[in-house]
Design a protein around this nucleic acid. Structure first.
Lengths: 252, 252
DNA sequence: CTCAGTTTGTTCTCGCGTTCACAAACTCCT
DNA sequence: AGGAGTTTGTGAACGCGAGAACAAACTGAG
């Protein structure tokens, strides 16, 4: 009772306004969705879009789970956080569930996005069709290098980083993508936050520190490879030690 | 009972051979490192490299934790899985710890890597310096499109996907990166696995199914954005409902 | 040598996430 | 209408990871 734990030290008195259902208002059950579930909802959404394009009208939790690559029990529990959108004995209506998940995630509306740092990766991101097709619209490409201003990348011109304040103000940009070198990342981040950006996707190999209320997600290509390398090394070590063990048995 | 579906159906009797220390051989304590820790080791490694380049000889868990963006207790616990590489009352020797972590991850040796699918993203990956500088060497760029074979990207020529078997055989490639369109991903994956690749980094927005013993890690740009969008939506909803609540109080 | 100060390594507790198992609810056939 | 067969939604158990707190061990001064 009385929730002693405070993961996000916000306004002390209003802190319960977000996570707890509130005593009086019994509106929607969509209050607190676990982070692990939130991370999987986009996967389910993509699987549903795939089923939809293939003309499937209805699917069971088993089918959808297989398409999303997860356990069916986990899928059902995840969906139960959104509400009861299935029919027992039947399954889920693909279009209906697709809409509900899209609405829950927030991709029924269009999110304007800026990309900062148009190097190799920035180029690729600017041309990536997966963004625009899923509720995100790249409204500007920004770079610190004046020589590149005006250059056309995927139909958009590269503009000066100084325009960020204007973009937040007039285009309603709330999400920024950082694809700069690591040294520049924190400065760019600070400037984005100061301009009013409250969600950041960081591709630079640097740890960003941001004030409360700003979300940062990090995508690090080399870290992913290193994790694979660890497991790969363990595989070969396991083989070796297995062989050594056999040798030992033979030799003894 | 009798396990209808097996997420990792290994050899039932030998399944304990990997995680448990083994009765006879009491060599190193480096047997089972938790996944969450493995995912953070590269972050620590990068932080240590940063400290090293800045000329720092020794650091405390507090300093290193700050540089890596984690809790110092968590850092110490993570490092304790590798062994006791610090000195109480003093801290950690930067170079020594750096080497130990690199060795544990497996990046003291060079891992040959192939990239399949040289589109926008493949281009960016081929030119990404973060790979080569951290124990990974891109040995080949493969693409299904014959028109692009021979084209130079970042010092390497694009080659036919058919060469994959040869690369695994003669160059010892064990890690593959998939940067193809989603439709092609599973077929490419199957071919990689058949050729002997046992670790895959997948950038295609598709769920890959692989046999046991093959590791897959997925990097999905649009999913990361969708997770941000969810939180962004909740922020604006929280503001709205807060405003509405205030209005209600004023109106009542 | 002893004692105060510092920092690591580890133990313990708590909460989250995953999974199992089953009741509730729906369809279809007789 | 009733019962068998399906499939969802959820309660409960379990294991993993995070964080706090503390004992062990090292340094340096007197």
């Amino acid at each position: 009772m009385t929730a002693p734990r405070s993961p996000r030290a916000g306004t002390p008195s209003n802190e319960a306004a977000r996570p707890t259902p509130g005593p009086g208002s019994g509106r929607a059950p969509e209050r607190g969705i676990p982070e692990a579930t939130v991370a999987r909802l986009p996967v389910y959404l993509r699987a549903l879009i795939g089923l939809s394009e293939r003309g499937t009208m209805t699917c069971s939790s088993e089918e959808l789970a297989a398409a999303a690559g997860v356990n069916s029990a986990k899928l059902r529990k995840d969906l139960s956080y959104l509400g009861s959108y299935g029919t027992r004995g039947v399954g889920y209506d693909v279009e209906y569930l697709r809409y509900q998940i899209a609405r829950e995630i927030g991709v029924t509306q269009d999110w304007p996005v800026v990309i900062v740092g148009i190097g190799n990766l920035g180029h690729a991101l600017a041309n990536y069709s997966g963004f625009s097709s899923r509720g995100f619209r790249i409204v500007a490409l920004l770079d610190a290098d004046p020589d590149r201003h005006g250059e056309d990348v995927g139909g958009l011109g590269i503009r000066a980083f100084d325009e960020i304040e204007d973009l937040v103000e007039n285009q309603g940009v709330a999400i920024g993508v950082i694809a700069t070198p690591a040294q520049a990342a924190q400065a760019v981040c600070d400037r984005l936050v100061a301009a009013g950006v409250t969600s950041i996707l960081n591709f630079a190999p640097a740890v960003l520190s941001v004030p409360d209320g700003v979300d940062v997600r990090k995508v690090d290509l080399s870290i992913e490879l290193q994790i694979l390398a660890y497991h790969e090394q363990r595989k070969s070590l396991a083989e070796q030690s297995l062989a050594a063990e056999l040798d030992g048995v033979v030799g003894a």
